[in-house]
Structure formats: structure tokens, C-alpha cells
């Protein structure tokens, strides 16, 4: 069953205490950060520390993602070379473009052969945070079969666009739509940018709801206190689950009666509604809200 990525928590890569605690904070994925959270003078120590942490710490069911430095810096290629050898679940590629995704894909092909890992087992998440990357997001995802998701980095994107980043987020409306649509088209996860005011829980809930309403499937976090709020927004409500189960029941009944279409509460049930109901039930099973048997229709 596919892993959930409702929340992805950034953790600074050079902080041993945080690396040790990362697995128990409740996030679906943790992002061990070698890029922005690490000063230039500590890039080497963070890289070694993260490598040792992955080798040593049992992160259990939490997806371990490592954000490497951009490939056009002195650190990026070495990050990939060192970290991939201890087999993180996923690498996150900043300022992603097609060429860099292809380059990392080739590097990983070689490392997986040398280390005896299953080919293609190390996944990639593309960090889209430039205007060019955003316009090209569909091709970036298609650049490698390893790409399982896109994370929208709004701080760098708005900086690249030369516009102000606001709490309301109107300025990233287009970017969110573009990323959500490309990811849905290619069936990968779309992760929203972090909400940077870690004390504004209400603002976070609103921002996450907005992202969800535009089709994004998860949200990144920069503080553990944000995780529960993000999960509560991305979990289907009880009413949504109930409705989904009724839709699937009605469809089953119609099938038994040999009908091609059916209706529920006076509204026709067609393929998109059935698809949405299946998605809701599938997510509830993955969240453990219902058992597979409850959801089997």
C-alpha cells in the first residue's frame, strides 16, 4: 500500500537531538535537511551526521527523506553520493529541473548497482521553487520514474518572481494549481509549502485547507506542533467517509441489478463520483480509520 505523505517535517541535518527525535513526532515523512538549515561551514559535518543517523536510528514507518544541496553547488553531488549509500527512502532535490533529476537518477542507478540495492528503490521528490521549474513541473516529474512527489517551495519561488510572500498566499494561487494538476495527472503526491508562522495554528489550518481545496495532497511542516493540524485537515471527515461508503454501496446494488448507472439521494452517480469515493475509502483504510474489510465493496 502506498505511503501517506500528509505531512513532511523539516529537521535540521546538523542537530543530533532533533535527528534522534524525528521518528516519534508523528509526521508521515521527515526531511533531514542538508541545505538551508545548515551553514556553509558545517556542510561536511551535517552530511556525515545524517549518514550516521540513517545507519543507526530506527525511523520505523516514517519515510526518511534527505534534502540534498542543489546539484550546481559544491555540495550537491557529494550529498547524493554519500547519503544514497545508506539508502534513505527518498532524496529531495532543490530547485529541481529536468536535467538535475536525470543526473541524480543516473547517479542512483550506479550506486544501487554497487551497493546491491533494488534498482529504482531510492525515490525522488522534486522541490519546485523557481519560475522555470514551476512552468516545467510536468516534465520534471516525468524526468525519472523515481519521482514520487513534488514539494512547492513558495519562499524561494516568490523571491524568484520578485513578489511579496504573504500569509494569505494569494500570490501562490497559480503555483499551487499548477503543481496540484501536474501531480494529479502523473499520479504523484503534491506537497504544499510550509506555513512559516509556527505560533499561528488557526492560520495554519486555513492555509492547509486552502491547499487541500486546490488539490494538493499534503503539506510540509517546520515545527512538530504543526503536524496534528495538518493531519486533521487532510483526514476525510466522518460525513465524507459515510457518503463515500453509501456511494459504493449504491454502485454495488446497481451492478447486481444489471444497471449501468444509479443514483443516490436523487443525484446520479457517475465515474468521477465513484472514483472520489474510492479515494476517500482508500485513504481511510490507510489512516486506520476503517479496516480493509469495512472498505471492501
Amino acid at each position: 500500500m502506498q505511503k501517506l505523505r500528509r505531512s513532511m517535517l523539516f529537521m535540521p541535518g546538523n542537530n543530533p537531538g532533533m535527528l534522534q527525535d524525528a521518528a516519534i513526532l508523528g509526521a508521515d515523512s521527515i526531511i533531514l535537511d542538508l541545505e538551508d538549515a545548515v551553514s556553509l561551514s558545517e556542510k561536511d559535518s551535517a552530511r556525515i551526521l545524517v549518514r550516521e543517523a540513517i545507519k543507526t536510528i530506527d525511523y520505523s514507518q516514517v519515510e526518511v527523506v534527505v534534502r540534498v544541496n542543489p546539484l550546481d553547488t559544491d555540495y550537491g553531488a557529494l550529498d547524493v553520493e554519500v547519503i544514497a549509500r545508506v539508502k534513505p527512502d527518498t532524496l529531495m532535490i532543490p530547485k529541481a529541473n529536468e536535467q538535475e533529476i536525470k543526473l541524480v537518477d543516473q547517479m542512483l542507478n550506479q550506486i544501487e548497482i554497487e551497493e546491491g540495492y533494488v534498482p529504482g528503490s531510492i525515490k525522488l521528490i522534486a522541490l519546485i521553487e523557481t519560475a522555470l521549474g514551476l512552468e516545467n513541473v510536468y516534465n520534471v516529474i516525468q524526468a525519472s520514474k523515481r519521482v514520487v512527489g513534488v514539494l512547492l517551495g513558495a519562499e524561494d519561488l516568490t523571491s524568484d518572481l520578485g513578489i511579496e510572500r504573504t500569509k494569505e498566499g494569494q500570490e501562490i494561487f497559480y503555483a499551487r494549481n499548477k503543481v496540484a494538476n501536474a501531480c494529479r495527472a502523473l499520479k504523484v503526491d503534491s506537497i504544499d509549502t510550509p506555513f512559516t508562522d509556527t505560533f499561528d495554528c488557526e492560520g495554519l489550518a486555513k492555509d492547509t485547507t486552502k491547499a487541500k481545496s486546490l488539490g494538493l495532497t499534503g503539506k510540509s511542516a517546520i515545527n512538530p506542533r504543526q503536524i496534528e493540524i495538518i493531519h486533521s485537515v487532510f483526514a476525510p471527515t466522518e460525513a465524507e467517509l459515510k457518503h463515500a461508503l453509501r456511494v459504493l454501496d449504491a454502485m454495488e446494488e446497481a451492478k447486481k441489478e444489471g444497471k449501468g448507472v444509479c443514483s443516490l439521494d436523487g443525484k446520479m452517480i457517475d465515474a468521477p463520483i465513484i472514483n472520489r469515493a474510492n479515494c476517500t475509502v482508500d485513504q481511510c483504510i490507510r489512516l486506520g480509520l476503517i479496516s480493509g474489510e469495512d472498505g471492501a465493496r
Binding site: 543530533p16 561536511d44 559535518s45 556525515i48 551526521l49 550516521e52 543517523a53 545507519k55 543507526t56
Partner: peptide
């Protein structure tokens, strides 16, 4: 231990 080893190596 993992931190000690990493820092010595660095």
C-alpha cells in the same frame, strides 16, 4: 554513539 563517531570523522 552515532554522533560521537560522526564528529570524530569530521
Amino acid at each position: 554513539d552515532y554522533t560521537i563517531g560522526a564528529r570524530v570523522e569530521t
